[in-house]
Computed example of a mutant assay.
Amino acid sequence: MTIIAAFPYGKKDRSALHLAGLLARSSGEPVRIVSIVPEQAKSMIPNGSELQFAAWSKERGRRAIAEAEHAAAEICPDVSTTAVAVAHRSRAKGLIAEAERSAASMIVLGSGTEGTRGRIRVSATSDRLLHSAPLPVALAPRGFTAEAGAQIERVTCSFRGDRGSEAVLAKTAEISQSVDARLRVATFGVAGRTVQPASLDAESRRREYVDHLRKLQSAAVDGVDEERRVEEAVGIGKDWKGALGAVDWHGAEILVIGSSSEGRRSRVFLGSNAARIIRHSPVLVLVVP
């Protein structure tokens, strides 16, 4: 299979290519670097302006491919890459169409040059993909870079404890095996929101909730066909930033998040809690349908 890496031609953001290279190096898959260029509306008889636009778009695509090839030679020369330009009126739809043509395993996006460094910024394109893509979507934090030769060290499943959590854990286990990385299950909660509000003994209720989460995790882990040891963690904080900060993270780690049960099973559909976790994640994120 192939990893699709979105390449923003003319921009300084290279985080998606760094992440795609890291994933490809870990899994052995090739990377298809895709730049979306404007597509002219088709008409029966093109006029002069339409022909000029088509020529401009073709030239823009040629330059985007050259820039992507140069970036790949610097960032991931040890990975098999192919750069292409795809004409489409929508960046999100263009990436999905190319992913389907290439039988891709996932689409990889960066966070641009705005927002907080080290945190994921959801752009208009990534937001569209996170609510409609038929395949996993990987997100790199702003400014993310991967060291030469680096591989994924650990894959963490964001465990919700609902009826769909076991399926997400199973997918996470498959991913960890494909990249030969350690597997961890982690559940996150916010005091006063996801954690039951306390009436008399806040600390006692907190401990009860954490124990409840650990039991759910352990039961789910027992159902995973995994020969390696599965790590477990629970992160509780006063907000989502604190909850994610309550557990340890590695630089070359991926946090896997499942779609909301409200969406179509064959599509990614991001729930509100998942969106908050993504915004505060200190590591790479992979959202799976």
Rank of each mutant, 00 (worst) to 15 (best):
S259Q: 09
S261I: 14
G251Q: 10
H250S: 14
I254Q: 06
F269P: 00
G245D: 09
S266P: 01
D248M: 13
S260K: 03
S272P: 07
V247M: 04
L255S: 04
A274H: 01
G258L: 10
G258F: 12
S261M: 15
E253L: 08
A275D: 13
A252S: 14
A275N: 01
L255R: 02
L270M: 05
G271C: 03
R265A: 15
F269C: 02
L244C: 06
G251Y: 12
S259W: 12
V256L: 08
L270S: 00
N273R: 05
A275Y: 10
D248V: 06
V247E: 04
R267F: 09
V268C: 03
D248F: 06
I257W: 06
I254S: 05
R267Y: 13
L270Q: 01
E262V: 00
A243G: 07
G271S: 02
R264Q: 10
H250I: 06
L270T: 00
S259D: 11
E253D: 07
A246K: 02
L244E: 05
V256H: 03
G258N: 04
S266T: 14
F269H: 12
V256F: 09
G251W: 06
R267S: 12
G245R: 07
A243W: 11
L244F: 13
A274C: 01
S261Q: 12
A243H: 09
R267N: 07
A275H: 15
N273M: 05
A246F: 10
V268H: 01
F269L: 05
G271Y: 09
H250C: 14
F269W: 12
D248Y: 12
R267I: 01
A246R: 04
G271Q: 06
W249M: 03
V256T: 13
F269S: 02
A275G: 02
L255Q: 05
E253H: 02
A246V: 04
A246S: 15
A252R: 10
S261V: 15
G263E: 10
V268F: 11
R264G: 08
N273E: 15
V256E: 05
W249G: 00
V247N: 00
S261P: 08
R264S: 14
L255D: 08
N273K: 03
G263T: 02
S261A: 09
S266F: 12
G251A: 13
L244T: 14
G263L: 05
W249K: 01
V268R: 00
A252D: 08
H250G: 15
G271K: 01
A243F: 11
G263K: 03
S272R: 08
V268E: 04
S272M: 08
N273G: 01
G251N: 14
S259Y: 11
V268M: 03
N273Y: 08
I254C: 08
G245F: 07
